[in-house]
Design a protein around this nucleic acid. Structure first.
Lengths: 212, 212
DNA sequence: ACCCTACCTGATCAACTGATCAGCTATCTA
DNA sequence: TAGATAGCTGATCAGTTGATCAGGTAGGGT
């Protein structure tokens, strides 16, 4: 077996995975800050500590790097939400929903890049927003609206169509973190501090679930 | 001196003002869609129907054009809110607040560019976000938080610090319109339709003021 | 009627963009 | 240990960027 390689063909060396991850991490930040067009491959390369052609080696194009960066962000979100939901099997829906919303808000505080990128790409037409919606956003949307519809049947959320509740949550939840630099200048505090995150999460949950 | 012109010296011809406005209108859209770095002067010029050097003639730099575009957006918002507030002198605070929130949401539906631009610029450091906050956002912030603090004393809004209420409003209100292209693909309806605007405004007001 | 200049443009600039290619080096395989 | 190749880079490409400049034209003041 030693020589006759099985289906598991390792063609990449360990060091490549590490630099790939460093590039993706840098790309997440730069794309979120300066948008797809505004972020330059040289900036990303410099932030990752590699040369600019190195991006072309690890990723076919700037566009593919962008997709890898978005995949990375959504993988983090999916992991967070999935483990939370699965850890609450048997718990009543309202409690589960509240904890899920809180996790989502904590995630948004730690990863505001996701919402910045979605906002940037949500302009007129574009291949990237189609890909974003079809591959990543729609599953979350379906799960979230299904949850809201069950809660509405219990009277646990306001009598508002589920899509609107979805956008109320995705708007009210992450915005204060997306605008964190503005908030620091404007209100004089860092919304990403643990205390602010807790206050904000409490407020969103209180509004959405009417303090039930 | 010949005519002993008064202080009112008209050095610009009427046609200049018209093209200036066309350029600003085009700049608002392009900057909102593609961010400061992503929008090109050639795109803006083409959208305005003028040559690219024409932008340099009317505006000292791309940066100054961006400021003029933002000024234009805030002038629209200020006019909307000011006339509303002044038209309600003597009306009780809660009613005034509800109508102001509704106007703000309608404005956000018709001018999602404002929130797109603020979001884009609210990254780490930058001269533009400082200017945005100091010149335009802070007055609105002060007025809004003052209003919320009065309402809190009446028990008309949830017991949450005013800055958090401010970000709940600026998040929950405009986001569905900022993400309108996503919403169309995801939920299958246009949030900027009159019916959707009304439903959304009702929902935000219901949440924020607890259906009072 | 004349001149002046506000208005607008084509041509062009240096700087920068993403991508490509040849070549170097360290690691893995045999 | 020798050969092969994955990993990475400097040099360089054509295309695009914001800005400048010289020049042309039309509208207004005298």
């Amino acid at each position: 077996m030693a020589t006759s390689s099985t289906t598991d063909e390792r063609t990449t060396r360990p060091s490549a995975d590490a630099t790939r991850e460093r590039i993706i991490a840098a790309a997440v930040d730069r794309f979120a800050d300066r948008s797809f067009e505004g972020a330059t491959t040289r900036e990303i390369a410099a932030a990752a500590g590699v040369s600019q052609p190195s991006l072309s080696y690890h990723f076919r194009s700037k566009d593919e790097l962008w997709r890898a960066a978005v995949d990375s962000l959504f993988a983090r979100l999916d992991a967070t939400m999935r483990t939370r939901i699965e850890g609450l099997r048997g718990v009543d829906l309202l409690t589960t929903a509240k904890l899920a919303v809180r996790d989502f808000i904590v995630f948004s505080a730690e990863n505001p890049q996701l919402h910045r990128i979605i906002t940037q790409e949500s302009k007129g037409e574009g291949e990237r927003i189609d890909w974003l919606v079809d591959v990543h956003i729609r599953p979350l949307y379906e799960a979230t609206t299904a949850m809201f519809e069950q809660l509405a049947a219990e009277g646990a959320v306001p009598d508002v169509p589920a899509p609107f509740l979805y956008y109320l949550l995705t708007g009210a939840g992450p915005t204060i973190f997306v605008l964190a630099p503005e908030c620091r200048r404007l209100a004089g505090f860092d919304p990403r501090s643990p205390e602010a995150i807790a206050t904000h999460a409490d407020a969103v949950i209180d509004l959405l679930f009417r303090g039930a």
